[in-house]
């Protein structure tokens, strides 16, 4: 977080447009991609914008109990959920840059683009969320816990179970 932003936040004043622009530059990419993976590209820009507008109003209440990034992602998650409920949206498929099953002979041939997408989609929403946040979006356990509002131990447990399920799905797929 840049110094002017820190100052504004600590002074509990509404950030100036300039300070807010600094926050957007720093975090827009993460927030946008987070939204795009939940509501799709068509809605991502709108939701990201709403996230930052909400953040602008609420920033003076930010208490440094979590990182600014996870706070923003928490707002984005709420915005996404709201839109999903309103528009009855489904999470879009996540694409992986992996070879297809036809490209055999590789050491890790049991993980294939289609199979991984399928296995990820087969996970429960709770498991899928933590996997996407940790493995793809790079959030730490504590950040995930702050965003979702669950204990860190639960994140650990969910992630572990999600991986066991993924492994099983993929192995089963290979066996046919």
């Amino acid at each position: 977080m840049s110094e002017p932003v820190k100052t504004a936040v600590r002074a509990e004043i509404e950030p100036t447009p300039l300070e807010m622009s600094a926050i957007v530059r720093e975090h827009y990419e993460v927030v946008y991609r987070f939204c795009a993976r939940r509501v799709g590209q068509d809605w991502a820009a709108d939701v990201a914008q709403e996230t930052f507008l909400t953040a602008q109003k609420a920033l003076k209440r930010f208490r440094f109990e979590s990182s600014l990034r996870s706070w923003l992602i928490g707002i984005a998650l709420n915005e996404c959920r709201s839109l999903i409920r309103k528009r009855k949206l489904f999470p879009p498929t996540i694409e992986f840059d992996l070879p297809d099953a036809s490209a055999s002979g590789r050491e890790n041939a049991w993980i294939d683009r289609t199979a991984l997408t399928k296995a990820l989609n087969a996970l429960s929403d709770e498991h899928r969320d933590v996997v996407v946040m940790h493995e793809i979006e790079g959030l730490s356990y504590d950040e995930i816990a702050a965003v979702i509002g669950i204990p860190s131990g639960t994140v650990k447990s969910r992630l572990h179970h999600a991986f066991i399920n993924l492994r099983k799905s993929l192995r089963d797929e290979v066996r046919g």
Binding site: Y32, R33, A36, Q41, A44, A45, A48, E95, L98, I136
Partner: peptide, 14 residues
């Protein structure tokens, strides 16, 4: 490692 190959959506609307 496979998850790290996830395709990043292009960022729009900043």
């Amino acid at each position: 490692a496979a998850f790290r190959t996830a395709v990043e959506p292009p960022v729009l609307g900043m």
